[in-house]
């Protein structure tokens, strides 16, 4: 559409304009320079102050022994990092982060692909189902967390009622650290799988139909076509989802905060950074060090994405 429009009228317009432009080059350039600054500077300044400056400040704070609210701080170099990695917190927090990220990413991608296949069926109602499945992704994590906390409630939740129906006792989802993590993971996957499903659906709908037909004429059944054609051809989508869901899982906060405020068994890096600074401890320097570790991990993932995107997902 746009290409057709640019074709004819643009060329003569440029031809007419060219000599005119050259004549008042310097005045226009100078004016454009200030126009650009007037238009872009407010946004750029805000990004500089509230996105870039905090990165620098975080690194500085991470070298301090500093209680939030206190006016004095001592420079301690890398002590906060050393303390974190040598404390008993580190294996706990890093382990929880890895489990949470791997299971939520894997879970929402696999279930997302299955839901995408269901949405790709040639039946009525797929448009509504697609919206419904995507909806939890845009809802408040706090609201969603409360709704599921009620469902998981060992006393009066629907789940405990269902379990009683088959003669089982409801497990103590809140008090048992391991079950808390399972609970938060389930809800996180529920909230995010719609995103994966919709992205996978777009991928499925763009698969070349002729290849599919050729395979089915050759006698490949649905499952075989899915495994040998769809899955490999979807690899760019899979890679994109892997990166984006991994980055958002590493930043998951709302559900953890509302479902398990103490972070008992669910304290990932981001939650530990929050608890250390704003929980009971007020250890600002220590919290900043954990934030820097998290940022480094996110940076590595982003760089890996940029490096591998060309190599791994080429299928044309």
């Amino acid at each position: 559409m746009t290409r057709q429009l640019t074709g004819s009228p643009a060329a003569p317009a440029q031809a007419v304009q060219a000599p005119q432009r050259r004549g008042r080059w310097s005045g226009r350039t100078r004016r454009d320079f200030f126009v650009f600054l007037a238009l872009a500077l407010p946004n750029l300044a805000l990004i500089a102050v509230f996105t870039y400056l905090p990165l620098v400040n975080n690194m500085y704070y991470s070298t301090l022994d500093w209680t939030l609210g206190s006016t004095s701080a001592t420079v301690v170099g890398f002590d906060n990092y050393i303390n974190f990695f040598t404390s008993s917190d580190a294996p706990q927090v890093l382990g929880t982060t890895v489990i949470f990220t791997v299971v939520t990413v894997g879970g929402s991608m696999v279930l997302g692909l299955l839901v995408a296949l269901a949405l790709n069926a040639k039946v009525r109602g797929t448009t509504f189902a697609r919206s419904a499945v995507f909806a939890p992704y845009v809802l408040s994590g706090v609201g969603v967390g409360l709704v599921w906390l009620f469902i998981f409630d060992p006393g009066y939740g629907v789940l405990s009622w269902l379990l009683r129906g088959i003669g089982q006792q409801s497990p103590q989802w809140i008090n048992d650290p391991q079950l808390s993590l399972v609970m938060v993971i389930i809800v996180y996957v529920w909230k995010n799988l719609g995103y994966c499903a919709v992205v996978y659906l777009a991928g499925l709908q763009s698969l070349p139909k002729d290849v599919m037909e050729a395979a089915s004429l050759d006698g490949a059944n649905g499952f075989r076509r899915f495994m040998s054609i769809s899955v490999p051809l979807l690899s760019p989508t899979t890679f994109f989802l892997l990166i984006t869901t991994m980055i958002s899982s590493l930043q998951a906060f709302d559900l953890i905060r509302i479902m398990t405020p103490l972070g008992n068994g669910t304290s990932t890096l981001i939650y530990e950074a929050y608890l250390q600074a704003f929980g009971a401890y007020n250890r600002a320097g220590y919290s900043a060090a954990i934030s820097v570790v998290l940022f480094a991990i996110l940076l590595i993932i982003t760089v890996l994405q940029l490096r591998f995107v060309e190599r791994k997902v080429h299928y044309s």
Binding site: I47, V49, F50, T51, Y52, L53, P54, L55, N57, N58, Y61, I247, L250, Q251, F253, I270, A273, Y274, A277, F278, A284, S287, A288, S291, V292, L294, F295, L298, T302
Partner: peptide
């Protein structure tokens, strides 16, 4: 690059600011 910086990492410095 700013698009890739997670806001969660900036909460402590922004709070202090």
């Amino acid at each position: 690059v700013a698009l890739m910086v997670p806001p969660q990492v900036s909460i402590l410095p922004n709070y202090i600011l």
